[in-house]
């Protein structure tokens, strides 16, 4: 994966990539320059993960249906 697409990753992808980066850094077999790049990439991945985690907003809606059972829209659901 290139370094530019973290913002497009799903949480799961970012997580797997972060895990890989950390594992690579921990093995310690990366050159100094590369390890700095890796660290920066890890930081971006972590930011992506945190952003996805921060998106934890509850929004519950009920679908409204017409006579034939086809969806017409939603109504917010409160108090459940």
């Amino acid at each position: 994966m290139s370094d530019t697409d973290e913002s497009q990753m799903t949480f799961e992808q970012a997580m797997a990539e972060l895990e890989r980066v950390v594992g690579q850094l921990e093995r310690g077999d990366v050159a100094l320059d590369a390890s700095i790049d890796l660290y920066e990439r890890g930081a971006r991945l972590k930011a992506r993960c945190e952003a996805k985690l921060a998106e934890a907003q509850e929004k519950v809606a009920k679908i409204t249906l017409d006579r034939d059972g086809q969806p017409t829209g939603t109504t917010p659901v409160e108090g459940l």
Partner: peptide, 15 residues
């Protein structure tokens, strides 16, 4: 995630 960050920072520092 924060564990990963810690491990990452630690491993870089250690390296």
């Amino acid at each position: 995630v924060s564990d990963q960050e810690t491990r990452m920072a630690r491993s870089v520092t250690q390296a």
